[in-house]
């Protein structure tokens, strides 16, 4: 990943993450197919809701005939981390018009956010509308198409996890967190490592007593507060 911020570079930079989208997207399509969702519903979920983990949860709640209100609340909780990520990412686009900010915000995901944070380490803290839009659009299209293909293949593939594609997403986050660790010069390696250990421990203890989504949010917020205090002490 170099310092260039053109649309073309954005497409190139997002390519490694595409594996994760294809693997999980196919898996989602297959799960949705076996949960009796039609292609139209799968496409609607992927292109309108566009929220990886929330889509899995919505699918299982639809299957269980849960009330609409419960589905809405779950979706909000799973996606509440988007509020943190968007607030963080938005700082890089303050100089752009409101419309461009809203366009970027509409398609932000865990992956494109993490990618952007890695990118700005290479560009002295700058990001561009063209670069971010390229990453967002490629991710959006690949995700939508992969889920629809997964739903069409449905019954044909017995076990998509056998080839290890489900691990692509985890591997991607491991790669992104490592690259973040070694390249964020503002925070430095030792401070970041301490915060990582804190978050991992917090998450480990929290998931015993609350849902994974709550644990993820609380561990993240607690990690940020811990990091702030630690930075002040140094």
């Amino acid at each position: 990943m170099g310092p260039s911020l053109t649309f073309k570079t954005g497409v190139r930079d997002v390519l490694p993450t595409v594996f994760g989208y294809i693997g999980v997207g196919l898996a989602f399509g297959i799960v949705a197919h076996t949960s009796h969702l039609s292609l139209l519903v799968v496409a609607g979920l992927s292109f309108i809701v566009y929220a990886g983990s929330a889509q899995f949860i919505i699918t299982s709640m639809l299957l269980l005939h849960d009330p609409l209100s419960a589905i809405f609340i779950s979706t909000f909780l799973v996606n509440s981390r988007m509020i943190l990520m968007s607030t963080s990412l938005a700082q890089y686009f303050k100089h752009e018009s409101l419309l461009r900010n809203l366009l970027i915000g509409t398609l932000v995901t865990d992956e494109t956010f993490a990618l952007a944070m890695n990118k700005q380490n290479k560009t002295q803290g700058r990001l561009s509308f063209a670069w971010q839009s390229a990453a967002n659009l490629v991710a959006y299209l690949v995700w939508g198409v992969a889920t629809v293909i997964g739903a069409m293949l449905g019954g044909l593939i017995a076990d998509p996890t056998r080839l290890g594609f489900d691990f692509a997403l985890t591997a991607m986050f491991i790669g992104l967190v490592y690259l973040q660790l070694i390249s964020d010069k503002h925070l430095g390696m030792s401070l970041q490592l301490t915060v990582m250990v804190f978050v991992a421990l917090a998450y480990y203890f929290l998931i015993g007593v609350m849902s994974q989504n709550f644990a993820l949010m609380i561990a993240t917020v607690a990690g940020c507060l811990f990091g702030m205090e630690l930075k002040k002490c140094r």
């Binding site: 943190l84 607030t87 963080s88 993490a114 986050f173 967190v177 964020d184 915060v195 990582m196 940020c224």
Partner: peptide, 13 residues
């Protein structure tokens, strides 16, 4: 917010 990237990515891992 400067800690959001590292904390969220760690939690997702």
């Amino acid at each position: 917010l400067s800690f959001v990237p590292i904390t969220i990515m760690t939690a997702l891992c």
